[in-house]
Structure formats: structure tokens, C-alpha cells
Amino acid sequence: MVTDTEQHADRTLDELVAIAQQVSAAVQTVISGKPEAVRLALTVLLAEGHILIEDVPGVGKTQLAKALARSIDCSVRRVQFTPDLLPSDITGVSAFNQELREFEFKPGPVFANIVLGDEINRASPKTQSALLESMEERQVTVDGKTYPLQPPFMVIATQNPVEMEGTYPLPEAQRDRFMARISIGYPDRQSELSMLDWHGSSSPLDELKPVAHASDVRALVAAVREVHVSTAIRQYIIDLVNATRSSAELRLGASPRAALHLLRASRAHAALDERDFVIPDDVQSLAVPVIAHRLLPSAEAMVGRELPHQVLAGIVQRLPLPGK
């Protein structure tokens, strides 16, 4: 027998999926040939996380962030991180108002629903940490006064790979704040061809119209929170993070926050799949984007040229599901 609450949940889920599909379709008009990246970005949005897009310059990191932001009718601010950027350039400043004869808070770009931090690793660590603090606490404190940020709040940060010149790589403690890391990668031949056709004549980003509203997103987030997570799945997540901690190939394993992020992302993933319960496949498909960027390889693994995400994929492949 199907209960009322289930029916309600199903309806919300249906709506959610419809909206998500619209957003996804809209974003994909800009970023063609990368449905997984788009879907992951949506997942993180619904799971109330932040996303780190890491790739070489020019593959569409900013485009993805912008497209996602624009397809949802909400406030979007973009910060271009440079070495001389100051923390107050992000959080805002208290300026003296000559007329009112008092200090007045000028909100910085962080006061938006979606904040696009472009090339975050070009800024100094001090500035980076200003953004990261507000990411975690969803509030900004300037001159002793605290200003809350409005939900939905999502930071989409892009960064160049650490090997590139002129960068300050994010320390692991700060990488841990991002729910997921995406690597977009080069488009395939067909997508690149069509991109040349399209983008030569007009900018698809300019033509992108919002397909959802911030309030829709809030409702969706609430619906995602209702997705059922069984004990077995929770055990599985714990097993997974524990396996990263005890692996010989990893110097640093996943944090408890990573487990929490993985659980929330799995919920969103299940919801996007029109399911009101999480299955191991959700966790497995999200394990690498959600956990890999938090791991540090051991010396052995570095010698063996084994990257953390490869180690993690191996662990996921081997780790048995908890018994019934």
C-alpha cells in the first residue's frame, strides 16, 4: 500500500526531476558533451555543497559555472581571484557614510546565491580562507558584526591544476570544504566541432534563460533531505571512508566531513534518479568526485605514479557491500 506521505514524496520527486532536467538541458546548451559534469554540479547544488572545478585553462570551467548560475533565476556574483585580491574584496567592507555619519556595510560578492570564484588558487591563502570561512559557516563576519548568507548558497570555484605556474594550491583543509571536485576534461571531437560552429556566431550563454527560481531550488533541497538512507548504506559509507584511512597507498584518508558530504550528495543523486532511497550505486558513483580531492597519496603511491582517485576507485571496486 502506498501511503500519503509517499505519494507526496513521489510528487515532489517528480517535480524535482522535471526541474532538474530543465536546468540540466539549459546548461548543456552551453557545455555540450559533458552531461556527467552538469549532473554532478546539480547534485552538489541540491545537496547544499560547494563545488571545485579543476582543470586546465580553457575547457569551460567558468562557462559551466556561469551557465548553471544563469539557468537558475537567482543572484550570481563572480570573483576573479588574483594575487592582489584582499579578503574584503570578497566579504565586503564597512565604509564610513558621510551623510549618516556612521559605518555602513557594503556586502561583497559573497552575498549571492551562487558565487563563482574563478581561479581560486591564484589568490593568496589569506583571501582564499576568507571565502572558505563563509562557505562553511554560511555567514560573514565583518568588524564584529555577523551577516548571514541567503540560501541557496553555493560556491563554484575553479582552479588550475597545481602544477601550473603562479598558483597557490589550496591546502587540504580547505579542499575538504568542497563537496565535490569535477574535472571537465577536453570535449570530444564532435562536441568541439559543434562548439566551433555555435560559438563562432553567437554566445549561447547570453541566450540562456532561467528555467528555475531560487525558491524552487530551496524546495528541491528540502525534498532531497527526505530521501531515505538505510543502515546498510550508512555502514557502507563508513566502511568506505575507513578503507581510505587504512589504505597503505594513502597518507591522508577521508574526513568525517567527507562521509557527511558523501551521504548528502548520495541523497541528491538518488533524488535526481527519481528514487526516494539511496542505493550503493549512488555512493559508488559519487565516491571519486566527493572524496578523491581530500586524499593525499603516500610516498609509495607517488613513486608508483598512482593518483589518489585511482586508489579510491580501486577501493570502491574491492570494498564489499555490508551484509544484509
Binding site: D239, A243, S246, R318, L319, P322
Partner: peptide, 14 residues
């Protein structure tokens, strides 16, 4: 070997 490793991975993780 794989099976044994799996069982060990499971044992060490649970």
C-alpha cells in the same frame, strides 16, 4: 588473491 584481499579489506574496515 582478490577474494582474500576483499575479505581482508572488509574485515579491516568493519
Amino acid at each position: 588473491r582478490r577474494q582474500v584481499r576483499n575479505s581482508v579489506a572488509h574485515r579491516s574496515s568493519s
